[in-house]
Design a protein around this nucleic acid. Structure first.
Lengths: 218, 218
DNA sequence: GATATTATTTACCCTTTCCTAACTTAGCAG
DNA sequence: CTGCTAAGTTAGGAAAGGGTAAATAATATC
């Protein structure tokens, strides 16, 4: 079994991995708020446990074993978030912090029950896929809102960040998952985008926001 | 805030305390499965934090501050157990282990919500009182089943141990909280007791069992 | 009251996971 | 190709929370 700290490293490696699954020591250090020498030594420990591919001065990559274990932690995190929203009346902006703690609980019984009570959900409240019991993630193809063109009509399906502030920002503007968004225009200068949705006929969103929103064509 | 380990010490001190609230190093050591020198040094740390009264070679006692913090941990434990049984379809014999972990979560929001969803319960699934938000326990006066006399009719209201094996033993015999029990006879030799309840007209229980069952006169 | 036993404490050590300071390597600018 | 910079690494150390072995205090027994 992995320690609390090891689990956090695995999760961060999983979340930070680019297309190739590569992560630098520095990125990990920033994400975890742990200085790089400490990260370095923990990575060696994870490499000993065959969870991470490690070569000096090369980017880090999870092994298949590491990916699986990370996936299982993320599964617990996302199942928890879904349970908190669906069964305990929490808002989608409140659940991340609680799930950060609950994900470390060791009780298959507990998470199986959550899964069952939720009817084996495939997505969490932020639209992220819930890994299966083998830790495998079923990737869904989404397009960033920022990559859409004027005239496009898309469904808001997921967000890539779930910080309290960002989700409150969306709440305040009536932006929730499932809503249809029409792209009216884009501003080449700063990448901002003017859209309409629900009762809003004109709303301008900065690129910082639109690139964190994932959409599907309908 | 206290660490995970400190919380376990506080809880154990609370649970082991006799009428005077006294606990020996050895009792703590046994309960926590930690050798006494380690217990001794942790106790000094807790004494520095004003959570425990400590004098060399004297029994240990929680301070008022210590009692309060222990009470709040036990509150989280018992609320969790109640939630697991009432809202998640777990059996009363399954919830202790999960609650041992959940009790360490830091999220007032989460536990307040549980409390609310349960309708502010006063007792957990084993009949133990749930401390209030100040960590205060409302003691209820129960009599051990073993202290009753032949002819007594009592209600089974609580158990003093919640190990999986003991609760399964009770389940197997149809003994659940709230059931009425009639004392038929007691055996002076080994302290065993013959009782009737529900559909059972004769059932003999060892003293080991009857002294773990708490009853009320009706 | 002396001695034997048990409980508690002290001294010292180990592992985990973090840190800072100093060094090394890789990659880029000129 | 040389040297600079940034990223990564090594060395050494601290705090937390465990452990063993040995010393000391309290308690029980004769």
């Amino acid at each position: 079994m992995n320690t609390y700290s090891e689990e956090n490293y695995l999760k961060a490696l999983f979340n930070l991995g680019n297309e190739k699954g590569e992560v630098t020591v520095q990125e990990l250090s920033t994400q975890l708020n742990i200085k790089s020498p400490s990260v370095n030594s923990m990575i060696k420990k994870l490499a000993d446990k065959k969870l991470v591919h490690y070569e000096s001065y090369k980017p880090l990559r999870l092994t298949d074993k590491g990916k699986k274990e990370a996936g299982l932690i993320i599964r617990k995190h996302r199942l928890t978030e879904m349970y908190l929203v669906q069964k305990m009346e929490f808002g989608w902006e409140q659940v991340h912090e609680i799930a950060e703690q609950v994900e470390h609980l060791q009780s298959p019984l507990f998470f199986d029950k959550i899964d069952e009570l939720l009817g084996f959900p495939k997505l969490d409240p932020h639209g992220s896929p819930i890994p299966d019991k083998q830790g495998k993630v079923q990737w869904v193809e989404y397009t960033k809102l920022s990559d859409n063109k004027p005239g496009d009509q898309v469904k808001l399906s997921a967000v890539t960040h779930s910080s309290d502030e960002f989700l409150k920002f969306l709440n305040a503007r009536g932006l929730h998952l499932g809503i249809m968004v029409n792209v009216i225009s884009t501003e080449p200068f700063d990448g901002s985008m003017t859209v309409s949705y629900g009762k809003k006929s004109r709303e301008t969103l900065s690129k910082t926001v639109t690139e964190k929103l994932l959409t599907e064509k309908v």
